[in-house]
Design a protein around this nucleic acid. Structure first.
Lengths: 218, 218
DNA sequence: TAGTGGTTTAAACGTTTGTTTGAAATAAAC
DNA sequence: GTTTATTTCAAACAAACGTTTAAACCACTA
């Protein structure tokens, strides 16, 4: 049970390698043997520690999404605690949604753990996977942001909030995908900093959300 | 070679079923046997008509993306032909990008051909697939839209256009994904019409793009 | 009627898949 | 040091994978 300080445990190695391979080649495109070989671990060890491939997939998603969404909720909590009576400023709400994803993506990239590529694909994996591993982590969070955005932008119906927040989520996830993919066509030479990306996404999303009420007056 | 008028050819049945299964279960998650069985066709026929699974995948993507992007370019051509000297209105440029995707998605849904689900996943398939089947169809198109957007919104650098158009593409594709997925959490009861979706996406994207220059003055 | 080219078929090819086995190795507890 | 529990290992399991084969089938021509 005690590991050498300079060497990660077998279980940890497996889950880290699985992260990368799932992100690179997809869930179905990655075999347990791929993971075991890349981790320098016996094939049966992976099944010993995670029970099955399904268990390993669930562990990978949980490890990635749980802390990110917890941070999102925490930011929203502190925002609401700071000004309990006045409606929140839209930009702050959006930052609470956007920054944890970008930050975790940046940290992953620094450690060469391609969380963002996995994240970017999360919501577009085959529906069976999404319903099993992704949606459960998001339903509560999204509901919370719906009400926050709804009160920050007066005049939007629930239905409009649903679609607009969806647009924002799409922009965010595809931005993370672009941010992480190296050989994207037409990619500019200068790499974007994390806070730069947060700022641009927030401004873009805020303007787009406010257009939802502006457009109705036409 | 002559088929009964009320029955599609084997090749056509295969490619239509492949479309649906690829969209539902992913490229790697769908086997040639799945496709052959669902199409009521012998397994070897699929390989006879398309050479290999790779050939079938390429055929599916080509059939979906080619006409959509051709329509996008045509709309842009007519826009520029109509007013050759003045810069294009941003909303018209965005519509040329957004509407063909939504329309084709709507037609596919009417015919129960889930093109939009496939489309929504196109750009987030494992990178090997994207580079092979998706990027080649988009590089020329996107370059064209970069310049169009750049001239429609004066003051944006090339780099800003790159990221902002990326945000728009993300919003569009995730919107199509939401539009097509039935059992999405918190989905409103009222279904959105195609033109309604185009209008909302266009307004959202236009406001977001213009925020790119507005934010610089701060 | 015999023959021709395009198509479909059942069966099999070798490989890879997720998972399980039982023994060997290692660590922890007494 | 002996005994437990935990972890690793090579090997094997049945099932599913993409692909290929060679024979059968079918519409048509000569």
């Amino acid at each position: 049970m005690i590991n050498a300080p300079d060497k990660l445990s077998t279980k940890e190695r497996i889950i880290q390698v699985a992260e990368r391979l799932f992100a690179d080649k997809g869930l179905d495109g990655t075999s347990m043997r791929d993971i075991a070989d890349a981790a320098g671990v016996n094939l049966a060890s992976a099944n010993y520690h995670f029970g099955s491939k399904d268990g390993l997939i669930a562990a990978v998603f949980q490890r990635q999404i749980l802390p990110m969404n917890a941070e999102r909720l925490k930011l929203l909590d502190t925002l609401e605690a700071a000004s309990p009576d006045t409606p929140l400023e839209l930009e702050r709400v959006l930052e609470a949604f956007i920054r944890p994803a970008v930050i975790q993506a940046a940290e992953s990239r620094r450690d060469n753990k391609p969380f963002l590529r996995l994240m970017g694909r999360c919501l577009s994996e085959p529906s069976a996977y999404s319903e099993k591993y992704v949606y459960p982590h998001f339903t509560a969070l999204i509901k919370r942001f719906y009400t926050a955005v709804g009160s920050s932008v007066p005049g939007l119906s629930q239905e409009e909030v649903f679609w607009l927040v969806g647009f924002v989520a799409g922009a965010l996830h595809f931005a993370l995908h672009m941010w992480s993919t190296e050989n994207l066509p037409h990619k500019p030479a200068r790499p974007l900093g994390a806070e730069e990306l947060v700022a641009r996404l927030t401004a873009f999303a805020a303007a787009g959300l406010r257009s939802g009420v502006a457009g109705k007056t036409l």
